[in-house]
Design a protein around this nucleic acid. Structure first.
Length: 424
RNA sequence: GGAGAAAUGGCAGAGUGGUCGAAUGCACUAGUCUUGAAAACUAGCGUCCGUUCACGCGGACCGGGGGUUCGAAUCCCUCUUUCUCCGCCA
């Protein structure tokens, strides 16, 4: 959620930046500013009325103490009038404030100046290309869903029986590979200074709102209606919410958290070849990294997070590239996002395996995550997060890229975790 | 699931209708003292909104919401959470 004052002071800048998203928000922003002026006028009126009531009430107390009942009753009558005014103004405010809030919530984050304009993923900028030729496999190469069946490590049909489509069952070495990857990713994050968190997998409305899943993406989360909980679509939600309504000390920066959780996503309306196998599932495991930092440091931090994720892909010996998302592909809450894609020679296409974003104050404003700066002013912090990494698609990439005639080779860095060097 | 008790500032903990944004202690910050530190002493020390160049001023907030009253931390209703006991249970 954007801050009204920021909008007010940077109206032209904001409107221009929105254009890279293909968004013309002039009308909405104008309306927001207008409503905020109304809000302030009403607030002042309310405060002044309240001040009068307060001083009159004190007067009444004094007069009673002095036994001047008649005078006191006169003031009481005036207070009754003031209360009518107060009630009317209050009602107006009670209508205006949520309306203003709702309107403000329709505005996405302001894209960073480096975000290229564009409408679709074809307009994304290749920030870092793969450094050599893309790998090729011979004609016998198989996509991961075939390999999974061949080695009996992932059973998609069994998942359909137990739950439904998009809930694969990992078996034997498939399950072990997954567990190894989780440990590998968590240890790498720990070594990079991230504190490990095991959060709840269900969150309440306030938490889902704070990180921006509500109201924008309500349909994408599984909703436990009886208790009004949501199954988390990413660890970002519970982990970042640790700091909801918290004023941290500047000396605590940077706050670095990591966590592994299953992630649940409805992913409605997705069918066809591109969502086969592990390409898109309703439940997958992910290790997330989250940072809460000083506003001046957030872009520097974003680069270190990019480096961290890149390091993981290198250790897993996967061909990757890094994209800078264009305005049209940029998430609602993000100011700048880098996507990581791994090339699958078997599917002959790039698969998104990670996304790392700087939200600047968009999330912290919603969740009131602040710190005291050197002037003892309370200021919003910046939040960032990234997948490091998402399991399902990494498993797919590993199977496809490391397949050989006599089995799947496990990358060296992962072998201490899997305790085997081949799936055959 | 049943019965009872409670919720006040970073923490502990007073306050039961007006002078209470709230005593006191601890913690924290600054200063005095000291070669330095500790101790002692002095002062400061919540969040949000509005207004102001600023000092400041006005308003809201004592778990959330609503009510009674001229006036509510204090009385009433309701919700939530926590604790104790009983039951059930991984």
């Amino acid at each position: 959620m954007l801050q009204v004052n920021f909008l007010k002071n940077n109206k032209e800048l904001v409107l221009n930046r929105f254009k890279v998203r293909g968004l013309d928000a002039a009308e909405t922003v104008g309306k927001v500013l207008e409503m905020d002026d109304q809000r302030k006028a009403l607030q002042s009126k309310l405060d002044n009325t309240q001040a009068e009531i307060n001083s009159a009430s004190k007067e009444v107390g004094k007069l009673f103490a002095q036994g001047k009942q008649e005078e006191a009753n006169g003031i009481k009558a005036r207070v009754a009038e003031l209360k009518e005014t107060q009630k009317a103004v209050n009602n107006e405010l009670a209508e205006l404030k949520p309306a203003l809030q709702d309107l403000l919530l329709t505005l996405p984050n302001v894209p960073h100046e480096s975000v290229p304009p564009g409408n679709t993923d074809e307009d994304n900028e290749v920030f870092k290309a793969w450094h050599t030729d893309l790998p090729t496999l011979d004609d016998s190469a198989q996509p991961h869903w075939e390999l999974a069946k061949k080695y009996d490590i992932i059973d998609f049909e069994l998942g359909v029986k137990i739950t439904g489509a998009g809930f694969p069952v990992f078996k034997g070495k498939g399950a072990q590979l997954k567990r190894a990857l989780i440990n590998f990713f968590l240890n790498e994050a720990r070594d990079a200074g991230y504190q490990e968190i095991m959060p709840p997998l269900l969150v309440n409305e306030a938490s889902a709102f704070a990180t921006g899943q509500l109201p924008d993406k309500e349909g994408q989360m599984y909703h436990v209606t009886a208790q009004n909980f949501f199954l988390i679509p990413t660890a970002e939600v519970p982990v970042t919410n640790i700091y909801r309504d918290v004023i941290v000390k500047e000396a605590d920066f940077p706050i670095k958290l990591t966590g592994h959780t299953p992630c649940f996503r409805v992913e409605a309306g997705s069918y066809g070849a591109h969502v086969r196998g592990l390409n898109r599932v309703h439940q997958f495991d992910k290790v997330e990294i989250v940072q809460i930092v000083h506003p001046e440091k957030s872009y520097e931090t974003l680069q270190t997070m990019v480096k961290h994720i890149e390091g993981l892909l290198i250790k897993l010996e996967l061909p990757y590239r890094i994209l800078r998302l264009c305005g049209g592909d940029l998430g609602f809450t993000s100011a700048l996002t880098f996507d990581f894609e791994v090339y699958s020679a078997a599917q002959k296409r790039w698969l998104e395996v990670s996304s790392v974003s700087n939200f600047e104050t968009f999330q912290s404003n919603r969740m009131k995550l602040r710190f005291k700066n050197e002037n003892k002013k309370t200021v919003l912090a910046h939040t960032l997060n990234g997948s490091a990494l998402a399991l399902a698609r990494i498993v797919a990439s590993l199977l496809e890229n490391h397949q050989t005639a006599d089995g799947i080779t496990i990358p060296k860095a992962l072998q201490p975790y899997t305790m085997f060097d081949k799936i055959s």
